[in-house]
Computed example of a mutant assay.
Amino acid sequence: MIIYPILEEGATIGVTAPSSGVKAELHDLLKLSCSRIQTKGFNVICGDTAWTQEKAKSSPAKIRAKEFNAMMCDDKINMIIPPWGGELLIEILEDIDFENLKSKWILGYSDTSVLLMAITIKTGIATAHGTNLMDLRGEYSDHTTAMWQAVLSTKTGESILQHSSLKYQKEWDYTAPSPCVFHLTEPTYWKAVSNMDVKIKGRLLGGCIDVIRHLIGTQYGDVRHFQQQFIHNESILWYLENCELTTTDLRRSLVQMKLAGWFENCSGLMFGRSNANQPVDNYTVEDIYKELSEELQIPVIYDMDCGHVPPQMTLINGAYAEIEIENGKGSVMQFFNP
């Protein structure tokens, strides 16, 4: 069965950096992010790793793992949000104390999704793929991003509905800070390979494909065990997003997932918007989506609110979800079923 943490009013949020920390010149942004969280009524405890960054990581792997383990065992801390993702989170997995992790929400995306997926697969504790801390530094958040708080406050046995965003951010403009961190300018339009309205159901699992693909063949990516042990062999509804891969690298990664059995008993695939997906020899990402749908005989949805092109929904690894697309608009109903 899946174990769902709960976010309660006045909770204490731990900020640790299991991947990348924050360099000195950006400390003001981290402080601002923490203060914004505090204005929502939460307490904040920042670990040492959040404030350092060198050689593509916040600190050596064992130090990152030790601080994370300590926060997960500390009864005073109710939830963990890293500052952001990074590159080398996978280094800490062998030092995570999976057997003694307490039930707490961990929220993030990008490289953080390696940790989220590994925890849910190995322990059955639900994890939250969504905004990171640094994206919560605005005076307010857009409606899609702001749903993280409502989603994580949902109780076991209850459900919560999210709708696709009205607009998304095409590119970052750091020269024009605004009350809302994201500059949402482009109309959102969810798509399906069939070009028809789609309904899919299944247990959610996924993350940033650039990094979670490296869990294949390890104990941290044993999807069959997860299906058998925690979700009673229910079908998996995968959500994936591409940060930096070309179309051929994306295709190789997806084929490897298929060969590893990740797509067995799979009800559908969903892909987030991406600024990557560069075509190779006229081989486009739309070609990949069509091939996948035909090979696996399942629906494929793309350009959804997930990943590095904000805003993004809060998707719960392990939750049962019903996804609908109608006329380019999407909805995600998540059921916190054990």
Score class of each variant (00 low, 15 high):
residue 55 K to F: 08
residue 155 K to R: 14
residue 116 L to V: 07
residue 121 I to W: 03
residue 55 K to L: 08
residue 121 I to M: 08
residue 178 S to H: 09
residue 172 W to L: 10
residue 208 C to S: 13
residue 55 K to V: 02
residue 77 I to R: 05
residue 114 V to D: 14
residue 170 K to F: 10
residue 145 T to Y: 00
residue 97 D to F: 00
residue 40 K to G: 12
residue 179 P to I: 11
residue 196 M to S: 15
residue 16 T to S: 02
residue 338 P to N: 14
residue 111 D to L: 01
residue 328 G to M: 11
residue 324 E to H: 09
residue 263 F to C: 09
residue 327 N to E: 11
residue 169 Q to A: 14
residue 141 S to F: 00
residue 327 N to S: 11
residue 237 L to D: 07
residue 177 P to G: 14
residue 174 Y to T: 02
residue 105 W to A: 03
residue 32 L to W: 06
residue 236 I to H: 05
residue 99 E to H: 01
residue 33 S to T: 06
residue 271 F to T: 02
residue 330 G to T: 02
residue 272 G to D: 08
residue 108 G to M: 03
residue 101 L to T: 15
residue 186 E to P: 04
residue 1 M to K: 10
residue 194 S to K: 12
residue 169 Q to K: 06
residue 261 G to K: 03
residue 256 Q to Y: 08
residue 184 L to I: 03
residue 314 T to K: 08
residue 124 G to E: 03
residue 10 G to E: 05
residue 178 S to P: 04
residue 268 G to N: 07
residue 302 Y to K: 03
residue 8 E to T: 15
residue 304 M to K: 09
residue 249 D to H: 06
residue 308 H to D: 11
residue 296 L to W: 08
residue 159 S to H: 11
residue 329 K to L: 12
residue 92 I to C: 03
residue 175 T to F: 09
residue 181 V to P: 13
residue 28 D to M: 06
residue 286 E to P: 04
residue 305 D to R: 02
residue 7 L to Q: 01
residue 253 S to M: 02
residue 241 E to H: 12
residue 324 E to K: 11
residue 2 I to D: 00
residue 149 Q to V: 09
residue 289 Y to Q: 00
residue 278 Q to P: 04
residue 97 D to H: 02
residue 119 I to D: 10
residue 46 C to M: 09
residue 324 E to N: 13
residue 131 T to H: 01
residue 273 R to K: 15
residue 183 H to Q: 08
residue 293 S to A: 12
residue 304 M to A: 12
residue 317 N to S: 04
residue 290 K to E: 09
residue 26 L to H: 15
residue 34 C to N: 05
residue 133 L to W: 09
residue 223 V to D: 04
residue 32 L to A: 06
residue 335 F to H: 14
residue 90 I to E: 14
residue 163 H to P: 02
residue 259 L to R: 11
residue 140 Y to A: 10
residue 39 T to V: 00
